[in-house]
Design a protein around this nucleic acid. Sequence first.
DNA 1: GTCTATATACAGATAGAC
DNA 2: GTCTATCTGTATATAGAC
Lengths: 181, 181
Amino acid sequence: MSRPPRARESVLDAFEATLISSGERAATMDATARAAGVSKGGLLYHFASKDALEAGLLERLRLLVEQDITDMAAAPEGPVAYFLRTSVMDDDALDRAIIAVSRLAQGGSAAATSALRDMRTQWQEALRPHTKDAAALDLVMLVSDGLYFNNALEGGVIQGAVPKGEDLDRLVALVEAAARG
Amino acid sequence: MSRPPRARESVLDAFEATLISSGERAATMDATARAAGVSKGGLLYHFASKDALEAGLLERLRLLVEQDITDMAAAPEGPVAYFLRTSVMDDDALDRAIIAVSRLAQGGSAAATSALRDMRTQWQEALRPHTKDAAALDLVMLVSDGLYFNNALEGGVIQGAVPKGEDLDRLVALVEAAARG
DNA sequence: GTCTATATACAGATAGAC
DNA sequence: GTCTATCTGTATATAGAC
């Protein structure tokens, strides 16, 4: 089960980090190789093309989302609260993968857009049984989208746009009350 | 008051359209010139650099937001409902400018990120007097962010993610009820 | 498996004709 | 004001040495 070689993973880490910190334009093969501490040729041994590199990141996201859906179903505070709280960036592996793939999507990658669509659909279907109606489900999904959106732009669209601590508690309570009826 | 030359505006239209339909990577000077029906040299007469072209789009957004803030304050259904309803894409001038600038921001443009931040702050401050507390204002802003986010990705993250018609009515009612107390 | 060197393509920008 | 031609930098990708 130790499929992915360490070097391969570190290239993926570097690609992801560059996408997050500097945007899609800056996340070139060259920059990724440099950040990963390998040469361009070395990178191309693991990922034969830019497309292959992007596909590698998309697969990483897919696996992380799969795990998150499982965690969400088992969360003690309930799926809705878990979902909203984890929509606030914690710089964990899933958050980083989502932001990086968002950058690719905004850069015009159809495959990345499709991956984000699939991710959102999985969450939506997992949450549907826990909301009172379609409008409530819309509300939960859109608040989550908003939280992600504010983190998907470099440094957040606005400092303090994403509530933390007690502010987040109040927001989650507000949404849960509205969503549960 | 007819400051901007027609050719200049049509170049801006072409740049905006290319950003929306094909992403930041594809919105080159060459592609923009072609879409606007001028040569690269012609484009460079109106906008001396890529930076100047981006600045032109940012200024267009600024003017459209200024008008929208005025319209929002005067809206008969109230600012909150107006704000949420107009957060659903209607393919109007403001919506197009926002999506295009979002693409630039995701591509790594600090100026574009800053413009979006300013835009969001203006809306937030205009809405603050119409919400019961900070959590309620967060809720309204985040639902709006979510609605925009779903349209900022090519074709929307998901078909049907953005509620329309009666679904939108129910969502607006739900948010207004929560935000007004 | 990882490297250097290089081919090919295309981006942004300049110069100057019309 | 709009054009063509061209310079320069840089991106992806290939070839082949180590």
